[in-house]
Amino acid sequence: MKRNYYLFAGLCLTGILAVAALLGFFWTPYDSAAMGAEKFLPPCAAHLFGTDNFGRDIFSRVMEGAGPSFLIALSTIAIGAAGGVLLGAVTGYFGGLADEILIRVGDALTAFPSILLALVVISLLGPGKPVNLVVSLGLVFIPSFARVTRAAYAEAREANYVKSARLMGASPARVMLLHILPNTMPVLLSALTIGFNNAVLAEASMSYLGIGVTPPDASLGYMLSEAQSVFGRAPWYALTTGGVMILFLFGVGLIGEGLRFQEGGDV
């Protein structure tokens, strides 16, 4: 088989950034709140990404801001995937009225911009708290996972391996979990990478708008809105912060591409 460079490159890129982001929870080169250094220092050996309008080290701030973004996206996807897979599996496997209703509601919901839905939920829960952000984004991601899973389960329902498992007396839960779920993995993994990127983007957008993660909590989205106001004096602030975000999304995108390539899905 041809070597899967996409998957390899994607895993390396995402891995390095994820390690740096997780490291940011415990250690950063400088105290990210310290305003000791000179203001608006361009990138140099001591300050890899330069310093901002308060003389804070941008590299340390990016490291610290990437962690929450990463974790929020991860928990968002966990909620979305857990809820969506459960709903999709049950309705897809059993069919019937619940299935019909889910398809209709899901169709209506997936037609909406995810950010709009998340904004609605968060304005009901109250903006400004990371927990509310995770809950609102998580709820918003349920329909897309439910849709993908439902399609896979509805197709598998009539497959021979499922029929034979049923004939041998396996319970519906066992069939769904042990027989069908592993077969839906390629589709689900692909949906996970796409969903993860959407979650990172949605979190960053909402924090940029001042409704997601707000200070004193660190986040890349909020940093970009700060960077915009000092772009003329310190373009490296926006470029490095945005660059890290792009590289991260790019890495996950490559993993998704690699997974599809692995499956031979790419024509």
Binding site: N197, L201, L224, I246, L249, E257
Partner: peptide, 25 residues
Amino acid sequence: TVFNQFCMAIPPFFTGLLLSWFFGV
């Protein structure tokens, strides 16, 4: 494929920031 994935990874508000600075300011 690589370029395509890269373009998909660019958040619109980041592009917007660069455009408003370059063409605007």
